[in-house]
Design a protein around this nucleic acid. Structure first.
Lengths: 116, 116
DNA sequence: CTCAATGCTATCTTTTTCATAGCAAACTTG
DNA sequence: CAAGTTTGCTATGAAAAAGATAGCATTGAG
């Protein structure tokens, strides 16, 4: 099984397992941020609903990411399906500003590629 | 060559290429955030220095990430080597708080795994 | 010219991710 | 309660990405 990056043990980018490196390793996997994002933006969701919201994630990967995020205490299962934990929402709070920033970033890039 | 996610064209998680999804796709690749992080924290660096700072990145991947980050206008080459652009530093500004948050996260996880 | 440092490319192996199919368990319905 | 649905996930094979190493073409010193 895939190794789950948690602070305290060696992860990619840090032999000491510095918390931020463990976090970057965890979030730097396909769909990790995307799943957290859609859970926080769209609210709790069942496995299949989550699959739909993500548009193109395969069940195997979704399952892996969910396991990792749950192990990391960022996501949990509730009667409503999967949901971000308090900690997960806190993290999302830090990620959310990226939404607005991304638009500015997109505009600054536009001159080079003619976005319609 | 690897496709570089930029806002405006379809990326993983969004057929419309919503800026934030393009950003998450870009950053959700191994070492993407790590490279930006070390460039912003440690200052400009040559290819090899960057390799050392990252501890375990392979040149092929570092090269890919650098290309992507440059294409995205987050990193550029200067006389001092690679450096974060103004835009890159701005993004880092949003990412940096994760460092402190990760420590809290680590503590909340500690009870479950006895960090030394 | 010789030598070392720099910036990468090549190549091969291991992991991850993707794309599908499909199954077991929990619900619904009739 | 039998039959059909929905849900949550596992299985499988193929493709893409990442990791580990070796090494080559410049560049700049000496």
């Amino acid at each position: 099984m895939t190794k789950i990056p948690l602070p305290g043990s060696p992860v990619r980018g840090s032999k000491s397992g510095a918390p931020v490196m463990a976090l970057l390793d965890l979030l730097g996997r396909r769909w990790a941020m995307g799943v957290l994002w859609t859970l926080c933006q769209g609210g709790p969701a069942t496995f299949r609903i989550l699959q739909e919201r993500c548009e193109s994630i395969s069940p195997a990967v979704l399952n892996s990411r969910l396991k990792e995020l749950r192990e990391a205490n960022l996501v949990e299962r509730t009667t409503e399906g999967y949901a971000a934990t308090k900690l997960g929402q806190e993290l999302f709070g830090h990620l959310e500003p990226l939404g607005a920033w991304a638009k500015i970033w997109g505009k600054s890039l536009a001159p080079h590629q003619d976005i319609v």
